[in-house]
């Protein structure tokens, strides 16, 4: 049981990073990224390629993953004009799928590595220091928690700066910020890069934890799950994003315990889980659209 909880919290921490990243891009800056999983994917693959194919030290690999994701985020930000908001959303979906397709079709090193086979044997950092695998897993959990905490502090701080304030204004349209002299394209670029980098960190942490990655981990439905977490928790509120993460993770992972009680076939379990999350999201949008934890007002007059 403890093993399972350690695993659960580690994964929750990694997903939490993704939620913070999406909340930065959508909740704070109003960017509707429907291909958000691409940052996770790039962080995971680039770190893996650097470490497995090029023998880079793991830390360097992870930094490479973060950088690749951040750069890609910047790339995605370039062609955005506010007018095309829902259009931009659809094209991000397409972009993420193209990247996945590239990884699906490209062998990495040898013919049976990469492509649909994925990459296995991804090394774990500092594994040699621990004899016990459960002790190591606790150690990795600690790493993830530290990353999550630092990222949380970072995004909260960003939101409180004049930079964050301008992003918030851009949520509701480019016209007013532009009329007040703000170069909105530069703000969007930075928001996408930072968000992308955080997503890349999550992906790199995942790759070196799971020891295996494959294109099947990066399907569009994963983006939807992250959106579910952010909307459930409350877009615009980073604490809310984490709350939403934990709730969805709980639902996702508890079904395996409930199933035997309700005599549900294993094959039906997976779909039922997704249906439950889908229904939850619709209920939230219908009845609590601002999410469980609403955006806090910045008060200056005590």
């Amino acid at each position: 049981m403890i093993e399972f909880l350690v695993y659960l919290f580690t994964m929750a921490g990694i997903w939490g990073l993704m939620s913070l990243s999406l909340n930065l891009q959508y909740g704070l800056a109003g960017l509707v990224n429907l291909g958000h999983i691409v940052f996770f994917m790039l962080g995971a693959y680039v770190s893996t390629i650097l470490v497995v194919l090029f023998d880079a030290p793991i830390l360097l690999g992870m930094l490479g993953g973060i950088a690749a994701a951040a750069l890609f985020g910047g790339l995605m930000a370039l062609p955005t004009a506010r007018l095309q908001q829902d259009y931009w959303g659809i094209s991000t979906l397409a972009i993420a799928e193209i990247v996945r397709m590239i990884f699906l079709n490209t062998p990495l090193g040898s013919p049976y590595v990469g492509r649909a086979f994925g990459v296995s044997g991804i090394p774990r950092p500092l594994r040699g220091l621990f004899d016990d695998s459960s002790a190591y897993n606790l150690f990795y959990l600690a790493i993830v928690i530290v990353c999550l905490a630092l990222t949380y502090l970072l995004v909260r701080w960003l939101a409180a700066t004049p930079f964050g304030r301008t992003l918030k204004a851009m949520r509701e349209g480019d016209a007013v910020p532009q009329a007040l002299g703000k170069p909105v394209a530069s703000f969007r670029l930075r928001a996408m890069m930072i968000g992308g980098g955080i997503g890349g960190l999550a992906g790199a942490l995942f790759a070196h934890y799971n020891a295996y990655i494959g294109p099947e981990y990066f399907l569009p439905v994963e983006t939807f799950i992250i959106w579910a977490m952010v909307i459930l928790g409350g877009a615009g509120n980073f604490t809310g994003a984490l709350v939403g993460t934990f709730i969805i993770m709980a639902i996702y992972n508890s079904t395996r315990f409930i199933a035997p009680w309700l005599h549900i076939d294993a094959q039906v379990l997976g779909p039922l889980r997704m249906i439950a999350i889908g229904v939850l999201i619709i209920l939230v949008i219908l009845f609590v659209p601002q999410g469980l934890v609403s955006e806090r007002r910045r008060r200056y007059d005590r």
Partner: peptide
């Protein structure tokens, strides 16, 4: 912007 305060 409606979702920001007057001072913001």
């Amino acid at each position: 912007p409606q979702r920001m305060t007057v001072l913001e």
